[in-house]
Write a protein that binds this DNA or RNA. Sequence first.
RNA 1: GGUCCCAUCGUCUAGUGGUUAGGACGCUGGCCUCUCACGCCGGAAGCCGGGGUUCAACUCCCCGUGGGACUACCA
Length: 472
Amino acid sequence: MQKNKQVRTRFAPSPTGYLHIGGARTALFSWLYARHSQGKFVLRIEDTDQQRSTEESTRAILDAMEWLGLNWDEGPYFQAERVTIHREMIRKLIDEDKAYYCVCTPEELEEKRRRALAEGRKPKYDGTCRDRKLPPSDGAVVRFRCPQTGTTIVEDLIKGKISFNNEELDDLIIQRSDGYPTYNFAVVVDDAQMNITHVIRGDDHVNNTPRQILLYEALDYEIPQFGHVPMILGADKTRLSKRHGATSVMAYKELGYLPEALVNYLVRLGWSHGDQEIFALDELIELFDLGSIGKSAAVFNPDKLLWLNQHYIKSYPEEKLLDVLRPFWKKSGLDVTDSDYGLHIVRDLKARAKTLPEMVESSLFYFTDEPPIDADAAAKFLTPEIADHLGAIADELTTLSDYSKEGIEAFLRNLAEARSIKLKTIAQPLRIALTGKTASPGLDDIMLTLGKERVSSRIRRAVSYIRNHRLS
RNA sequence: GGUCCCAUCGUCUAGUGGUUAGGACGCUGGCCUCUCACGCCGGAAGCCGGGGUUCAACUCCCCGUGGGACUACCA
C-alpha cells in the first residue's frame, strides 16, 4: 500500500456535454477526499473521442466546477495531447507480446457477436488474430492479450471485495484503427503516470476495473485504490436523464439555486454523517470519508434540494445574497443601484423564498410606485368603511418620529386601539395598499423598507382606489 | 443471455446481533401571528420474500425476487 504517499485524486470527464448532476457528485467526492487528506485534486479531460469531444463542453464543465467551488490543483490535462505517451506504451506491450495487431473488421465482429448471442453464448472476442503475429497495417487495431485464467480481485473502497474470473474478460482493443488509444487504455496510463492514488468514479466503471488492473500489471504500474460511487437515478429509478428535469449543474444556477445548496444536497445523496443534514464546506472537508458512502443507487429528489436552497437563502449573508440576486433582477429589467434599499428588501424576503427568481418575483412591489392591485383582494379588503382608517394612517404617520420597526409596530397598534378596531381589521387592507397583494413580509418590515413617503402615497392611492371603485 | 453490483418509511439516510427501528425532505394536525413565510410541537408512513446460523436477527450465511451497471474501434 502507498502508506506515506500523498493522496492524489482526479476527476476525468469526457467533454461531450455539460457537467451533469451525477458527474458533479463524483467530482465532489473526489475533491472532498483530496481536500480531507490534504492531497491533490487533478482535473483531466478525456477527449480521445475526436468525434464527440468539443471545446464548448470543456468550457461548460470547467465553469460548472468553478461555480460549485471544486478547484483543482493540477490541470486541466487533455488526454488527446498525450497520445504520444499512450502509443509508446502500446508499442511496449506489443514488443513484449502482451498486445497484438488485429485485422478483424467491425462488420465481422458484429456478425460474430450477433451469432453468439443468438446461440446463447457469451459475445466475447474469439481470438482470431491473437496468435497470428500480424504486422502493423492500415486499419488494424491493437488488442491487449488478456490473461484467460485466474481471478482478478478489486478491493473497492466503497463496495468491498469484488472478484472476476479472468476467462470472462476478452482481449479489449487498446488502440483504434485511427491510431488513437481507447479509454480503458488511456485512463490506465494517465492515472498511473499522474500518480493517482485513489480512483474515485461512477460505479458504471466497475466492470472495466479488472481489465484495467490487468493492464496496470502488464505495464508494470503500481495499482491505485478504487472507489466506485453508486449511480444517481430519476424518480422512476432509471438512470437520471433530461426527462427527469434539469440534470445540468449550470441549469440549477440559472434556476436560482445556490452552489452551497447543490453541494450540500449532492454530498448527502450517498454519503452521510449520522443524522446531520446541513454541512458547511469546511465541515465537509473535515468529516468526509469514503467509508461512509452508501453502496446503493440513490434517487434524485428535487424537493429536498429545494428545501436546502431555501435554507441557504435564509441563512446567506445579506450582502452576498444581494449580489447573487442582481443578475436575476436584471432579467426582470431591474437594476438595483441603491444597495441600502436592496439590502432592506433582501432582509424582508430572505425567509420567504425557495429560489432566487421566486425572491425577485415577490420583490416587484418594492420597485413600482403603483403596484398592480389584485382585484379579488381589493374586493374583499378595500371596502368603503376601511378608507377612513387608511386615511388616518397616512395622516398620523406624518407625526411619527420613531420610524423604526418597533416604532411602526407600536404606531399601528396604538392607532388601531385609538380607533377601537383590531389590528387585524386594517392589516390586510394596508398590506394591499402597500403591495397590491394579500401575502407579503410583515407590515412593519415593508413600511420600514419603503420609507414614509412611499408608504403615504401608496395609502392615499388605495384610498382613492376605494372612492373610485366603491363610492361612485 | 452472460458478468458484476445493490436492497431500512414515497424519497435521502442512521443502524453494525438484544433499539418503543432514529433523523431529514415531502404529506399532515396544531401553536405562533397583521397575511405569507420562517420557527416550534405532534401525527401517519419502513426493515423485499423464504430458508438457515444463534438464546436472540433489520443486522451474519444461502436461495429467490426486484432494481441497476457493463457486455463498443464511447467514456
